[in-house]
Simulated assay, not measured.
Amino acid sequence: MDRAELAAFLRSRRERISPADVGLPVGPRRRTPGLRREEVAQLAYISAEYYTRLEQARGPRPSREVLAGLARALRLTDAERDHLHLLAGAPPGRPPGPSREVPQSILDLVHRLPRSAAFVTSALLEVLAWNELAAALMEDFSALSRRDRNLARRAFLGPLPGGRRLYGVSDADAFARHAARRLRTTAARYPDDPEVSALIRELLAGSEEFAGLWASHDVAAEPTLCKTFQHPLVGPVTVNCDALDLTDRDQQVVIYTAVPGSSSEEALRLLSVIGTQRMDASG
């Protein structure tokens, strides 16, 4: 264990994260760049005293559970997570939780599909990346918190605060089954990840539909071939659905395309011009 390097690495990662990145208020008297030590400790589910000792190069070797909590709290990339383990003298094993780091090549691919609505989801069905047409067709994800970008939460627990929700789709029931089955697989793959457990507990407590689907123990995903969005500006938009698995990240790239020459293709073309602006706003 390299205590000095571990301390410096933790401090550098803490200082680069803003409170807003993790849903914390900035406050008028904040003088520390990035997060405070106690905030990292809270997010990692460890004591503030223990985390402070790690940053001061005085702490004992952290367990794998502590390292997993720190990686999650500091929003480390996969490479940074592995580096953290090496500094702590605990060679990295399988990722403890779903990856949220989207490869740059996939980000480039998503944004190079101007005539298709494309987005990337994690194993927890959180929308991690999207292009402009996906935002125009589905929701302006940039205006949502990370919590509210979770499609499973949206499907089973209803609209967002203020009444906003993803536009209605024709396959809501099929997507609910897909979400429950995918989360069942995710729970088995990451049994020790607190974020996975917390989401499933939340859905079980808040949705009888999810509880019923969860009790079936089904894991085989049903492919979605097409769906129709009831968009408030351009009307119904029917799209073909394709999903590309990123097996090394446990993520999916979802691509929606319309049949060439169809009214839905014209609607997508119009949405690519309209974007996320509110054309129906009064005044």
Rank of each mutant, 00 (worst) to 15 (best):
A117Q: 03
D218P: 01
G212W: 10
I255F: 00
T121F: 01
A71V: 04
G162F: 07
A220P: 02
Y256P: 02
A73C: 10
L133V: 01
A281L: 15
P95I: 09
L271A: 02
L87S: 06
R201T: 13
H83Q: 13
L70I: 15
E139A: 14
L166V: 13
A187Y: 02
F229C: 11
G158C: 11
L270M: 14
A136V: 02
E38I: 04
R278D: 15
D148L: 14
Q251W: 00
D21W: 02
A221L: 15
S63G: 12
R249S: 13
P236V: 08
G212T: 08
D250M: 02
P260W: 00
L160Q: 12
E38W: 04
G89P: 12
A188H: 10
A48T: 12
L67Y: 00
G97D: 07
F229E: 01
D245K: 03
T276I: 14
V237F: 01
R149M: 08
H178R: 14
C226T: 11
A129L: 05
R278G: 05
P191L: 09
S272W: 00
V196D: 06
P161V: 06
L270R: 15
V22A: 08
K227C: 10
A44Y: 01
A143T: 15
A258T: 02
R37V: 09
G163Q: 09
G69K: 00
A88I: 06
A267G: 03
A143D: 08
P19Q: 06
V120W: 00
I46V: 15
L225V: 13
E132P: 00
V196Q: 05
R165F: 05
V127R: 01
A44C: 08
V254F: 00
L87A: 07
R184V: 05
R182Q: 15
T186C: 15
P96N: 12
L270N: 06
D82K: 05
L10I: 10
A73M: 05
L213F: 09
V273P: 01
R278F: 03
P33H: 08
P194K: 06
L204H: 12
D82R: 15
Q230N: 11
T185N: 07
Q230R: 13
Q42R: 13
V169A: 12
P95V: 06
S170Y: 02
E266A: 15
L124F: 03
R269T: 15
L107P: 02
V196C: 10
R146P: 01
E208R: 15
T247S: 14
A188C: 08
V196N: 04
A4S: 13
R53G: 06
L157Q: 10
L76K: 01
T247P: 00
T238Q: 11
